[in-house]
Simulated scan of single mutants.
Amino acid sequence: MRVTGLGHAGMFIETTGGSILCDPVIGPSFFGSWFPFPDNRGLDWERFGAADFLYISHRHRDHFDPALLERYVPKDIRVLLPAYPTDDLEVDLRGLGYENIVYTQPGEVLEYPGGLKIMVTPLRAPSDGPIGDSSLSVDDGTASILNQNDSHPLDLEKLLSFSKPDAYFTQVSGAIWWPMVYDLEQEAKQNFAQLKRDAQNKRAMYYIEKVDAEHVFPMAGPPMFLRDDLFRYNGLGLENDSIFTDQRQFLAHMRAERPAQKGYEFVPGTQVDLDGGALTVTQTLYTPEEIDHIFDEKWDYLASQR
């Protein structure tokens, strides 16, 4: 199995039974404010768009990019649809011309030629709201992965009954504007931001410990904000009043909390090859030096993107 990072929560999964395009986004999303970090425009989107399956985890526009789908993803692709209580995501997809819908059910394992097994687990926790969220489990006999995405599963036992994942991909960063843009004293914003980052780290570590996969890949954030009025809220903020922990910062936290855990930076172009427990990670878009610049000289990189 091969998993290639596409930026933010996007990934391209190549298996013995076909390929799956997950949450591809170029953006900008949310009224032009939200761009994938790091920049993912240099990827071969024609190649990734020619997948066998399309999986959109939920309707948030940092996971569902109609313009990208229209440009790169053929209308006859098989779409793995999570079982949500409302049909909003299906309506959106059909509105774009996608009619080849595979209706998944919670706990149901779909089997395809080549030994491919897929399970989509919808989440309907109060924090997810009516549009929901979901995770994707994939096993092709050579490896098993769990793409938990933004979801916060309540029933881990059911989710992990699929198979124990060799590699685990999960959100570790924030995705809300609290407390940065609210009318609070600056000291209060800084204190609340620290509490929020601590809570994010604690939540992510809880799932990492429960899933107990050998290999962990933090993803699904942070964004980068390039508009003048939002630029200062990138990362932890120019005044330590923001919540957007990046992959390298989280991995440092994870090493301190769980030293034996193997963790890796997952950026656009990161290629993860899994076979019978063996894992190889290769960077295909950015060099190691460029990745160091992106994370260690973040404000310079963000300024160049601006």
Rank of each mutant, 00 (worst) to 15 (best):
D246Y: 00
R124E: 14
S19H: 14
L302I: 14
F217C: 07
F35W: 12
F231W: 07
D62W: 09
L160T: 11
E209N: 14
M254G: 04
L21K: 13
Y264C: 03
P24C: 14
D198F: 03
P36G: 05
P130L: 09
G277V: 06
L184S: 04
D88N: 04
W177P: 00
K75D: 05
A252R: 15
L96M: 11
N40H: 07
E209R: 15
L160I: 10
D183G: 01
G32F: 01
R47P: 00
S29K: 10
Y182T: 10
N240P: 02
E265S: 06
G141R: 09
A51N: 09
K75Y: 02
P126Q: 12
E297T: 08
E108G: 02
S137C: 06
V281G: 05
S242I: 11
S33I: 10
G114S: 10
T15F: 12
G269F: 00
A51M: 05
N240T: 09
T142Y: 05
S173K: 08
G17W: 02
S161R: 14
P122K: 07
P82S: 07
L89A: 03
Y98L: 13
E99D: 12
H63I: 14
Q148D: 04
P165K: 12
I56S: 11
V109H: 07
E157W: 06
I291G: 06
H58D: 15
T86E: 11
L96S: 05
A51E: 08
V120C: 03
Y84S: 02
E46C: 02
R306S: 10
L123F: 07
L69E: 10
R124D: 13
N40C: 13
G263N: 08
N100A: 13
H215C: 06
R78T: 15
I131T: 14
L159K: 08
T170D: 01
G221Y: 13
M1A: 10
Y233Q: 07
A125W: 07
V272F: 07
P218K: 06
T245F: 07
D183L: 06
W299V: 11
T121F: 08
H152C: 09
S173W: 04
T284Q: 14
L110T: 01
N149Y: 00
Q148I: 08
R61I: 07
R306D: 01
R227P: 01
V3G: 03
F225R: 15
A252K: 15
F266C: 11
P153T: 01
N40Y: 03
P106K: 15
L136P: 01
Q283F: 05
N100M: 10
S135G: 15
